[in-house]
Design a protein around this nucleic acid. Sequence first.
DNA 1: CAGTAATGTGACATTCCCGTGACAGCGGCC
DNA 2: GGCCGCTGTCACGGGAATGTCACATTACTG
Lengths: 236, 236
Amino acid sequence: MSAKKVLVVDDEASIREMLRLALEISDFECLEAADIHEAYRLIVDESPDMVLLDWMLPGGSGIELLRRLKKEEATQALPVVMLTAKTHEDNVVQGLEVGADDYITKPFAPKELIARMKAILRRSSSEEGGSEMRVGELVLEIDSRRVMLSQKALEMGPTEFKLLHFFMAHPERAYSRAQLLDRVWGANVYVEERTVDVHIRRLRKALQAGDPIYADLIQTVRGTGYRFSPRDLAVA
Amino acid sequence: MSAKKVLVVDDEASIREMLRLALEISDFECLEAADIHEAYRLIVDESPDMVLLDWMLPGGSGIELLRRLKKEEATQALPVVMLTAKTHEDNVVQGLEVGADDYITKPFAPKELIARMKAILRRSSSEEGGSEMRVGELVLEIDSRRVMLSQKALEMGPTEFKLLHFFMAHPERAYSRAQLLDRVWGANVYVEERTVDVHIRRLRKALQAGDPIYADLIQTVRGTGYRFSPRDLAVA
DNA sequence: CAGTAATGTGACATTCCCGTGACAGCGGCC
DNA sequence: GGCCGCTGTCACGGGAATGTCACATTACTG
């Protein structure tokens, strides 16, 4: 496994230095940013594997950057660990709700930080990559953000695309609406669970426009949620 | 989705009581244990979805129980959150290395605890893969929430699925209707005991539709309840 | 073998869950 | 501004799943 790149965002140079030391000892590669704009530039330019983000920053609080990262498609999956001096629990809850993967209060022990970072990286590294996915005649082109069925392009919105992407990456498995919201919409977005139903319907409709049989790929699991099942396609 | 069962392991009754309150407000079902042996018994008998484990316990420290749980196959995937009064960072690292899923220092805010617990449960319920149970040609696919008999899918409702799941996890043992209601329907649910009979019938019917022999897996123990007995399948 | 308690079984009302169409808000684009 | 695509929410309707009952059947008891 190659060294993971970690971006440290904090306005105090001494803390950045301390973190750099701790990270490099543990075989991480370290980037530093003192404010939000520098941080955002480095995220785009250097695509780090993880961000350590201070709560209070000049030029906008850290949570604003967090919101922005979780809002944008390209950076949504990037793990973020919040650092804060505050101990009030509401901040923790707020941070977790916006999508932080973990939360550590200063002063913290480097060893603890490293241990938690590794735990988070272990989880997120199990996600998939690849430029296209295929199920029968159905081809999902990730780069061009298109879905082809028997050479013909299917029309669907961004959410339906993400939904299909997730399903194709995790076939033969039933997901609850809560899980789908979590994995497709993003960590902690607050929308009604029934919204999932509507997008499932739109996705089914899009698939059906290409070939009615392919709409059956998405099955309703009553009392639970939905399932993407290529297995049953072959049978039919 | 049914309420998650949480086991609280702490020797102080006041803390257990506080946690029970916090958990029940958030729709968790709460079990309590004051020591390691009681805790282990409850884990085996009640199979909770998560354990809140105090660091210091009479009769062996909490981390010993944690080691044991992570060592044994059956309990390896069970999420464990460590509770501790100690603030020394080495404890955190040690706990996480042994396999605790999170670590909270007392005093902690109930809101934070609940938020973290939910995050962990979301993860663990969507991470476990490839788990299935098998008895002869009968395969219960947990992830995809399907039941296959000789490659053919069986139709049954959610309750029958849960019932079968429970039976397959606890074979060769007779359960009373009250016990089945408790374990399958969940505690705090009041329904007539005879309701169990009806669902047993529906389950038998579903199995019979696949292969009549498999309906005999579920045996009536007169005066007691029912039993799932793979052993008698081989004989026939 | 009769009597009784326990279980099997079909039917039914109710509740719950899901599919679906409609609609308003929002932001981008010409 | 006006149009348009996308999104999230709602309300309605139909159908599946559930819990309960009444009655049939079975298994023990003496």
